[in-house]
Design a protein around this nucleic acid. Structure first.
Length: 883
RNA sequence: GGGCGAUUAGCUCAGUUGGUUAGAGCGUUUGCUUUACACGCAAAAUGUCGGGGGUUCGAGUCCCUCAUCGCCCACCA
């Protein structure tokens, strides 16, 4: 046993993983050929932010993609995983601005537009795309030659083309509308970029005096500082309390303005006082009311959400929150505060800026989505695109059927500049792929496009659209998309719309929505909480394979994952188990030649047939699970197969023929090799590094080749009689019973003892006789008496025993037996059995059951009852023998 | 206000279309340096499947309802 000096006792992933990745990449293994005749299989990566670093969310997401890619590669398909990064407008702009402030004592605004953009590109060259390198550490087999960036020339051209086409169709327009404004980015945002948080707030009731001095109205607001923009007070036209006031004026406190009282259905008589202050510039509802009554729109804020000159000297320049307090104070000074209530309400926050957004009226570019949504809704409804889990389609439909115009312009610099030019002299607007050539002075729009306006084209822009490239021909539409449900609106829905509109074809067939990863306590992972482990640390500690396997194993379908680093012990231990199974095999001698296919003439043992049957079963269920995106279930199956079936039982059982040597050993080695190679292949998509290493260590795969191009195992054609497999299972059950007896008497496992086995039938006896060497080994027995007769208690004294399917096993411990304990144990077993038998009999004597249940269910129930009754008789006899 | 999800062993979770005695990992207890593996082996204990009602011969699984927790959407001034 000195044949495998190269295999250390405990698997160490670091070196192995560092060794294989460059070999794979330098051998061009991930390269895809759009001209091949093979069936295409493609995935586009959800492009991570170019500023990003690997998080556990990426680990989960990309592990699953890599599992799919490797699985389909092993199915012999032409696979292509398109990688790349996203320019992430606002995030990158503020990241680089921060960098400039920290490192160079300058900033965006100091540098000016052109220089700043130049510096962002520079930063991107230097620091960007870290995550792309990190994905290699994880083992991802993407086609890196095809890495793209959303601001590459080609992709930028696609963006302009799409903009121009949608403009010509009349979908894209520029208009004055209510939008969400981020005071930090000083830019407009789309509705989707606003996150609502429940907060404690105040509800201020103010008195607005009537201009004629005949009293006052009480209005309530959560935003007192916007009152400088009030241009009316609305009451419901049906409201008896106030309808006589419609048309009169109120004096707007803190200003010199008088504003009208208007009748509008927006005012709900049942809410508050029934009077609403109308601030068209700062509230979407008020904006609508303003339009109906032709009210002036007065913006009272600066771009950074401080108050502007319209608010008067006392308030101008104040931050909005300071201004709020100050306004209330001023109103109190005037005695116009009726009351202040505490309320809980939802406040919209800017996703990036993490401050409350302002809703305000602004001139922006919008895209009308109504028509684009129609075919995209149909694509999912008809089942052309399938969602996993399916329930997300409900969320999708709800959003798509109520889709609003998309605010696509951003007042930042980093991004795709909107291809629109203004002629200030003529007032003309030109929209085109390139600058206008017509004479005159043209000024390009300053705004850039929302980042998602390039990401929604990703599945085809990454393949070279609008050119008709071989990649588009071969790989579009892509097959599967793996992404988080948090970007279903931002990205998934919009990609479907873009695909249908510009390719006239869906962008992908299946969308798998991953789980959200949380910490042990169920909290979201975040930098600020400090509960976000660095995957690279985890990989250094446990190995990439361990992390991949663990996260797949613990990720339930469509639910949150509770993750902690310690859980990776599962994957690490599993890798070690596999390593040692192979190490054991290597210690037995060199690889056998027929490891790819066993000779049909080979006469197998019961254990070997059992193992191959289990293997076949596992291959079937793992394949189905992968096809149905049930990754965790596939991981559980393969874990069970390797650990429980292969290691715990099969290797232990094969030690008998291995020790016997000669032909027995030869055959055992062949079966071990055959099974091991299949196991390595099954596991490869989950744990690419260790399976590659072991496939070479075991000499299943030649030097210069890779397991990743071996075919994924399919069920082989060996058919086994289920009755034989059941006998093998029965033997293991008997062994378990025997071990339990030993354990019950605190007999060390290593100590050899005598057993007596009474077989339940002559056939079973014959089988057990054939298997007796195996029984000796698995039970570590000194001597086993195998008979049809019960242990002779009269002659030898009472013995502890356990009943199993094939027979009763007893431990003849003459004189040492604890009779009372044994009786108690038996009585407990009998009592439990009594219950089950009673239930079973009741069921079987129920005429309705017999009439309505399927035949198979009835037959199974009868067989079970028989088994239980036999077991019952056996236990009763054992009890009697103890008297 | 609408929608979705969760509630199963001490913890984290499996449990395909309703059909044997509800499973795994971790943890706990006991015994093991058995020549692949202590990142291990063998054995053991632990559950009124959130409460209530219903459908059914049969419910962890389907329906209704309540409770708790979480997420998403929605203009409540």
């Amino acid at each position: 046993m000195s044949d495998a000096p190269d295999m250390i006792k405990a698997y160490e992933p670091a070196e192995v993983e560092a060794k294989w990745y460059p070999i794979w990449e330098n051998s061009n293994y991930f390269h895809s050929d759009p001209n091949s005749g093979k069936k295409p299989y493609s995935i586009v990566i959800p492009p991570p932010n170019v500023t990003g670093i690997l998080t556990l969310g990426h680990v989960l997401n990309n592990t699953l993609q890599d599992i799919l890619i490797r699985y389909h590669r092993m199915l012999g398909e032409e696979v292509c995983w398109f990688p790349g990064t996203d320019h992430a407008g606002i995030a990158t702009e503020s990241r680089v601005d921060k960098y400039l402030r920290q490192e160079e004592n300058t900033c965006r605004d100091d540098l000016g537009r052109d220089e700043f953009i130049r510096r962002v590109w520079e930063w991107k060259q230097k620091y960007g795309g870290t995550i792309i390198r990190q994905l290699r550490t994880l083992g991802c087999s993407a086609d890196w030659e095809r890495e793209r960036f959303t601001m590459d020339d080609g992709l930028s051209m696609a963006v302009r083309k799409v903009f121009v086409e949608l403009y010509k169709k009349g979908y894209i327009y520029r208009g004055q509308r209510m939008i969400n404004w981020c005071p930090v980015a000083k830019s407009a945002l789309s509705d989707e970029e606003v996150i609502y948080k429940e907060e404690n707030g105040k509800f201020y009731h103010f008195r607005y005096p009537l201009a004629d001095g005949s009293g006052y109205l009480v209005v309530a607001t959560t935003r007192p500082e916007t009152m400088f923009g009030d241009t009316a007070v609305a009451v419901n036209p049906e409201d008896e309390r106030y309808k006589h006031l419609i048309g009169k004026m109120v004096k707007l406190p803190l200003t010199d303005r008088e504003i009208p009282i208007v009748g509008d259905i927006h005012a709900d008589p049942t809410k508050g006082t029934g009077c609403v202050k109308i601030t068209p510039a700062h509230d979407p509802n008020d904006f609508e009311v303003g339009k109906r009554h032709n009210l002036e729109v007065i913006n009272v804020m600066n771009p950074d959400a401080s108050m502007n000159a319209r608010c008067g000297e006392r308030f101008a320049g104040l931050d909005r929150f300071t201004a709020r307090a100050e306004t209330v104070k001023a109103m109190e000074e005037l005695g116009l505060v009726e009351k202040i209530e505490d309320i809980r309400h939802a406040v919209g926050y800017s996703e990036r800026g993490n401050v409350p957004v302002e809703t305000l009226v602004s001139s922006q570019w919008f895209c009308n989505m109504k028509e684009l949504a129609k075919p995209a809704i149909e694509a999912v409804k008809s089942g052309k695109i399938k969602f996993y889990p399916e329930r997300w389609s409900k969320t999708y439909f709800h959003w798509m059927e109520n889709i609003q115009d998309w605010c696509i312009s951003r007042q930042i610099w980093w991004g795709h500049r909107i291809p629109a030019w203004y002629n200030d002299e003529t007032g003309e607007v030109y929209v085109g792929m390139e600058a206008p050539t017509a004479p005159g002075t043209w000024r390009q729009e300053e705004d850039v496009l929302d980042t998602w306006f390039s990401s929604w084209l990703w599945p085809f822009s990454i393949m070279g659209w609008p050119e008709k490239t071989p990649e588009l021909q071969k790989f579009y539409p892509t097959c599967d998309l793996v992404t988080g449900p948090d970007i279903i609106f931002f990205w998934v829905a919009r990609m479907i719309m873009a695909g249908c509109e510009f390719m006239d074809e869906i962008p992908f067939k299946n969308v798998y929505f991953t789980s959200i990863i949380r910490d042990d306590l169920g909290r979201k992972l975040s930098k600020s909480l400090g509960n976000s482990p660095d995957p690279l640390d985890v990989i250094a500690q446990y190995g990439a394979d361990a992390l991949r396997f663990t996260i797949t194993y613990i990720a339930p379908v469509g639910m949150d994952i509770r993750y902690s680093n310690e859980k990776c012990e599962l994957g690490r231990n599993f890798a070690n188990k596999l390593w040692n199974a192979c190490r054991f095999r290597r210690l037995q001698g060199p690889v056998t030649p027929d490891f790819r296919r066993l000779a049909p003439s080979l006469v197998l043992t019961s254990d070997e047939r059992w193992m191959l049957a289990k293997l076949n079963e596992a291959i079937g269920s793992i394949t189905t699970a992968l096809e149905e995106f049930r990754f965790h279930s596939a991981a559980h199956e393969v874990y069970e197969l390797v650990w429980s079936n292969f290691c715990d039982w099969f290797i232990e059982a094969e030690k008998v023929p291995l020790r016997a040597g000669g032909e027995d050993k030869e055959r055992a080695l062949m079966v071990l090799d055959y099974a091991l190679f299949r196991i390595l292949k099954l596991l490869h998509p989950f744990m690419p590094f260790i399976t590659e290493e072991l496939a070479h260590q075991m000499q299943f795969v030649e030097e210069g080749k890779s397991i990743m191009f071996e075919s994924f195992p399919t069920m082989d054609d060996m058919i086994f009689d289920p009755a034989q497999i059941e006998l093998a299972d029965g033997k293991f059950e008997l062994v378990r019973a025997g071990r339990a007896l030993k354990s019950g008497y605190n007999i060390p496992d290593g100590k050899k003892v005598n057993f007596h086995i009474k077989a339940n039938s002559p056939e079973m006896l014959a089988f057990l006789r054939e298997e007796s060497a195996s029984l000796y080994s698995l039970l570590n027995a000194a001597e086993i008496k195998l008979e049809l007769d019960a242990f002779d208690t009269a002659a030898n004294g009472a013995a502890p025993a356990q009943a199993a399917q094939l027979g009763t096993i007893s431990l003849p411990l003459t004189g040492l037996i604890d009779v009372a304990a044994e009786k108690a144990k038996l009585n407990k077993q009998i009592a439990e059995l009594d219950k089950s038998i009673a239930g079973s009999r009741a069921k079987l004597s129920n005429e309705k059951f017999l009439a309505k249940a399927p035949e198979k269910v009835i037959a199974d129930a009868k067989a079970l009852l028989e088994k239980m009754e036999a077991r019952h008789a056996e236990l009763t006899a054992l009890l009697a023998s103890l008297q």
